[in-house]
Design a protein around this nucleic acid. Sequence first.
DNA 1: AGTTGTAGTTAATAGCATTAACTCTGATGA
DNA 2: TCATCAGAGTTAATGCTATTAACTACAACT
Lengths: 211, 211
Amino acid sequence: MTEQAPRERYREQVRGEIKQHARNQIAEAGLPALSLTAIAKQMSMTVPALYRYYRGRDELITALIRDAFRSLADTVRAAADSGADLLALAHVIRDWAKADPQRYFLIYGTPVPGYHAPPDTTAISNEVMEVLIQANSALGEPESATTFHVHLETHREWVDSDTVGTGAVRRALSFWTRLHGVLSLELAGHFTGMKFDPALLIDDELAELKA
Amino acid sequence: MTEQAPRERYREQVRGEIKQHARNQIAEAGLPALSLTAIAKQMSMTVPALYRYYRGRDELITALIRDAFRSLADTVRAAADSGADLLALAHVIRDWAKADPQRYFLIYGTPVPGYHAPPDTTAISNEVMEVLIQANSALGEPESATTFHVHLETHREWVDSDTVGTGAVRRALSFWTRLHGVLSLELAGHFTGMKFDPALLIDDELAELKA
DNA sequence: AGTTGTAGTTAATAGCATTAACTCTGATGA
DNA sequence: TCATCAGAGTTAATGCTATTAACTACAACT
């Protein structure tokens, strides 16, 4: 088997370049600013040439969303594997988000009413959740069960591993929603004017999580 | 002083109609789907005629954002004035959001990098926060101060009323961020597949708030 | 060496926002 | 009452945007 790749390799190369330009545009001016025309101009190509690499604007965006999820999942898993505790994990995610806020919003921002992410993308999303649940399984189960805990007992089919306690699932959900709550408002600039440090609020919110 | 209004009244009437069509479009297909062309068609007008009423697409969006903030502030204040407790307040906000998710995202969704809301709009946003702080001042101050609490002591100039305790401010922030965390993920559909009831998660998250 | 697929082109279509220049009409002041 | 003036609405034009179709040229493979 010789190098049957040169054609395919070039293709992947160009696909990557297109995505890079797209990422830059989104990072600078948001998703609405993503323009195939602008990308083509930057690459010294004509616009229709881009259609050789992506079916259209939507497929390009979908690819970017998938990449973003992949990057987040890898980052979170790497941190968890190297023994980061929940607080450290939270700050790893925050750092990832702050490095490129629009990438975070690409994943967790305003949804487009019609749009449904392809199955492989939601699978990656679940990966993140699985890591969070695992990270939360270190702490034990609570002695007193809250209403939601009881509710979760009978609504946790979506969790892959049966071995993990419902308390861990519940804490993972708290972790995720609390972190996202602070982080998304911070990234969206809703705290500007209020001069406190969002990182400290996160610390506080997650400290209470252990209770 | 006679009826100097007919002209001005008609103007306000049309401005309202334009906004209504805009709201419908956004509710159905998101902000990117907002099209002046479509609005003009629905109103049997030509597109440039709309420019008599709004400087352009951006000013129309700004007006919608202001209206959304106004509606939320009024809703929250009304609930608070009629003696709703924190949990009830949370569900009032959730109901408001679920009635028109895209309106919620218009306010708290993905930000446009360049965009800064006009001062009068951020003022309304502060109104909401003030109500939340007041609602949280009913509960007393905690005996033990967390790190963030201490931090907040010296970073609360943005709070109008000096009489309210820092604990109330901290709880208001927790309330807001926890609610937004769950709500925005729910509205964005990130819980679909996980079959639990987000309302119960909110109850749980806010129950822990009292601690 | 000829065939075939792929990258790239040009040309065309259609939708979008925005501005300029114009017309008409209803209210207002002399 | 009539002239004026402002505002609503029009048409026309500009310049973006994405998308599709039809074509060309080249490079790989048989």
